[in-house]
Design a protein around this nucleic acid. Structure first.
Lengths: 221, 221
DNA sequence: TAGTTCGGAGAACGGTTGTTTACTGGATGA
DNA sequence: TCATCCAGTAAACAACCGTTCTCCGAACTA
């Protein structure tokens, strides 16, 4: 905060953020690879050429958007992992936080869901990296819980990825449900998500007893 | 087969299929909303205007591609569900079939993964519908298994969605792993997928004992 | 055989795109 | 105060886009 950056840099960051916001808005109804540079600058109200003062191309802007979007998600998960409640309460809290996050940053969620497998390589990579870091963080938290005693590290990681994936999927489904305008749709998604997490949690508790057969390397041919 | 359709209609279907194939090929590296009509016709080798003889616009072509892509997936799942093996063998077979399907129809998988949350509403809807039907089929199969005795219908459906989602996600991950050229990446994905399915399966077997608390309607506010 | 149907060609349309080049004017720092 | 920097401007570029309209010729039908 403090140093106040000078009028010059402050203005630059302002229009830079305006570009990011405008792009994110436009990306609600199209995908990044079809989003035009001129389209974005038009919304912001600056000349097309001014775009280059901030980003080399739309792909670069997309990567920045990824950081912005998943940065806020990061905060969300830290909040969940910090808790020490029982499994049931933790699940409720988790889903509730996802729900509220979707309501607060719908455009960010939409963007991540869409571009995760989208047409721009650099953006896909950025999302994959960030979600990977994400899973790592979840894995660390899971490992420190009593239930994980005797678990192999890669099994913990496997579980973490299952959780992360479920959260992302739930968030996307929730977004679609709200967009479709159907009345009870969102609540339905939330209920299903809770039960799915519960089932996974049950599987987790019984993993040590039955999860044998550590299918090492090999394979079939 | 037999009726041979006449030279006229046969040719039409031929170029129609050529359009679909060309589009699918181009969609390996971009998303539908950025795919141009001229781009497709150029690959096929016909005039841009001829496109309209087959599709109103690219969205319509996309919907047809969805049916084509998920139609083959449908066959795949029937094969899996038909089996009567034990849980472990079933999981191995499932993952193996997914693996081979990804190798046989990589472009179809890529397309579905990308456009599931893509920028074209009609296509998203078509994919959602098809995956829904898919989950319904899986649910019916799960219900007929002894393990599901005493399960509520919507709990079975919840489990089916969990499975379907996992298969789609695994297929997409497998595709990315193979594209990235990393040597053991694909095998790693397969191993993780197997263990995740195993964990879910364990959760399923213990669901009746611990899955209580049927969080009915209500909610929090 | 004569008439109709229709998949495809071709040209032209107005509009949009990304990118380059040269320029302006206010903030910046000596 | 004065030279420098640099975010944003303006004009022009060639390339491409989706769509319309008119026409052709081979396949169909009667």
């Amino acid at each position: 905060m403090s140093h106040s950056l000078g009028v010059r840099q402050a203005q630059k960051q302002k229009t830079r953020q305006a570009l990011l916001d405008a792009a994110l808005g436009l990306l609600e109804e199209q995908s990044l690879s079809s989003l035009g540079l001129r389209e974005v600058t038009r919304v912001v109200g600056i000349a097309p050429t001014a775009f280059y003062r901030h980003f080399r191309d739309m792909g670069e802007l997309g990567v920045v958007l990824v950081e912005e979007a998943l940065g806020s998600l990061h905060v969300m998960v830290r909040a969940i992992l910090a808790e020490q409640d029982g499994a049931e309460e933790r699940i409720d809290r988790t889903v509730a936080v996802v729900e509220q996050h979707v309501r607060r940053y719908p455009l960010h969620i939409r963007f991540v869901a869409r571009e995760r497998h989208g047409g721009v390589r650099a953006v896909r990579q950025a999302i994959a990296d960030e979600l990977g870091r994400f899973a790592e963080e979840v894995a660390a938290a899971l490992k420190s819980q009593p239930v994980s005693e005797g678990w192999r590290d890669d099994d913990v990681r496997m579980l973490a990825e299952l959780y992360v994936d479920r959260l992302v999927t739930t968030a996307a489904a929730l977004l679609d449900a709200e967009a479709d305008g159907a009345e009870g749709a969102a609540e339905q998604v939330v209920r299903v998500a809770r039960r799915q997490l519960r089932l996974i949690s049950i599987g987790r508790r019984h993993w040590r007893e039955e999860g044998r057969g550590d299918d090492g390397g090999g394979g079939r041919e």
